[in-house]
Simulated assay, not measured.
Amino acid sequence: MKKFLIGALLVMAPGIGAFAQSEVKAKEILAEVSKKYRSYDVIKTDFSYTLENPQAKIKETQLGTLIVKSKLNKYKIILKGQELISDGKNQWTYLKADKEVQLSEVDNSSDALNPAKLFTIYEKGFKSVYINDTKLNGKTLHNIDLTPLDSKRSFFKVRLQIDKITKQIMNALIFDKNGNRYTYTIKTFIPNVKVPESTFTFDAKLYPGVDLVDLR
Rank of each mutant, 00 (worst) to 15 (best):
M1N: 08
L5G: 05
G7D: 14
A8G: 05
L10I: 14
M12N: 07
M12A: 07
I16F: 13
G17L: 03
F19R: 05
A20K: 13
A20W: 14
Q21H: 11
V24I: 13
V24K: 05
K25N: 09
K25D: 01
E28S: 03
E28G: 00
I29L: 06
E32I: 13
V33W: 06
V33F: 08
V33M: 00
K35E: 11
K35F: 14
K36C: 06
Y37D: 07
R38H: 10
V42N: 02
V42E: 02
I43H: 03
D46P: 04
F47H: 12
S48W: 13
T50V: 07
N53F: 12
P54S: 06
Q55C: 08
K57M: 09
I58T: 06
Q62D: 09
Q62C: 12
Q62L: 14
G64D: 14
T65M: 11
I67L: 15
L72C: 04
L72Y: 15
N73K: 09
K74G: 00
K74S: 02
Y75R: 02
Y75D: 03
Y75T: 06
K76F: 08
K76L: 06
K76S: 02
I77W: 09
K80M: 06
L84V: 06
S86W: 03
G88H: 14
K89W: 14
Q91S: 02
W92T: 01
T93Y: 02
Y94G: 01
Y94P: 00
K99P: 11
V101M: 04
E105T: 10
E105Q: 02
V106Y: 02
D107P: 01
S109E: 05
S109H: 12
A112D: 13
A112F: 13
N114K: 10
K117F: 15
F119G: 00
T120N: 04
T120F: 03
I121P: 03
Y122A: 01
F126D: 00
V129N: 07
V129S: 07
Y130G: 00
I131T: 03
T134A: 04
K135H: 12
L136S: 11
N137T: 03
K139N: 05
L141H: 00
L141I: 06
N143T: 06
I144Q: 02
I144N: 03
I144R: 01
L146V: 02
L146W: 02
P148T: 05
D150Y: 10
K152T: 15
K157W: 09
I162E: 07
I165L: 15
I165S: 03
T166P: 02
T166W: 10
K167P: 07
K167E: 09
Q168F: 03
Q168A: 03
I169V: 09
N171Y: 12
D176H: 02
K177G: 04
K177I: 05
N180F: 03
R181P: 04
R181L: 04
Y182R: 01
Y184V: 02
T185F: 10
K187C: 07
F189C: 04
P191Y: 11
N192K: 08
V195P: 09
T199I: 13
T199N: 10
T201M: 07
F202E: 01
D203I: 12
D203Q: 11
A204C: 05
L206A: 10
P208G: 05
G209I: 08
V210Y: 12
V210R: 15
D211V: 12
L212S: 12
V213D: 15
L215H: 13
R216H: 10
R216Y: 10
